[in-house]
Amino acid sequence: MTMNLRERVTTTFQKRIANPVMRRMPFQTLLETTGRVSGKPRRTPLDGRREGNTFWFVSEFGEKSDYVKNIKADPRVRVRLRGTWHSGTAHLVPEDDAQARLRSLPRFNSFGVRTFGTNLLTIRVDLDD
């Protein structure tokens, strides 16, 4: 799978500038996966919406995203919501209408994913608590 120019630019910006800054913000929502190669925790800033014991979000590059590859290798994840960590199990939901899902999520995240996304994929995390 090769990345197009938009994906390369967006990914480089996120990995080198946006994500390191956002990970330091105490109330930024984070997804923690286990690296499929390294076995180390990998934290990705994102946004979504909690509905009861379920957390929903949309991946902008679908199965090309490293955190989606990590989820496929090990679906056990943690999500930091409002500064508190929650364990859960992530599920890829390709049958969900990702565009409709984006309309139900916080606007700031939806704008970025809609603007830069090339292969939208809904992800549901069933939280343990």
Rank of each mutant, 00 (worst) to 15 (best):
K64E: 08
K40M: 12
R76I: 01
T54R: 15
T33K: 03
S87A: 14
V37S: 03
R24M: 13
K69Q: 15
V93Y: 00
E51L: 10
L102I: 11
G88V: 04
R36M: 01
T44E: 09
A100T: 10
T54I: 12
K69M: 10
I17H: 03
F27R: 15
W56Q: 06
R50N: 05
T34N: 04
V77C: 08
V68D: 05
Y67H: 14
M25N: 03
S87E: 13
P106W: 10
V58N: 07
G112Q: 01
R23W: 05
D97T: 02
V21H: 08
L102S: 12
G39K: 05
W56E: 04
W56N: 03
N19E: 01
G88M: 08
P106H: 13
A98L: 09
G39E: 03
R76Y: 01
A90M: 07
W56C: 00
L30I: 10
G62N: 10
T34Y: 02
R76S: 11
P45F: 07
R103P: 00
T89S: 11
P94D: 08
M22K: 11
V93P: 00
W56T: 05
T34E: 09
P20Y: 03
F108S: 14
R23I: 12
W85R: 08
T33Y: 06
V79W: 08
R107P: 05
R24E: 08
A73D: 07
R42D: 02
I71L: 02
N70H: 13
L81Q: 08
A90E: 11
G48T: 03
E60F: 04
F61R: 14
V37I: 13
V68F: 03
E60R: 15
D66A: 13
S38I: 07
E7P: 01
T29L: 13
D66Y: 02
D97R: 04
G52W: 05
A90K: 09
R78K: 15
G83T: 10
T44L: 07
A98C: 10
F27Q: 13
M22I: 06
K69D: 00
R76E: 10
P41G: 08
G83E: 10
K64M: 05
T34R: 15
I17W: 14
T89L: 05
V68L: 04
N53M: 07
T54C: 12
P106A: 14
L30Q: 10
Q28P: 02
F108G: 01
R8H: 05
W56S: 01
T44C: 08
R103E: 15
R107Y: 09
P41W: 09
R24Q: 14
Q28L: 04
P26R: 11
G48D: 02
L92I: 07
S38L: 07
F27I: 12
H91D: 09
R76H: 13
N53W: 00
R8N: 06
L105N: 06
S104F: 00
A98E: 07
S38G: 05
L92V: 06
Q99V: 12
S87C: 03
V21I: 15
H86G: 07
E60S: 15
T29K: 14
S110R: 08
R50A: 13
E32T: 11
S87R: 12
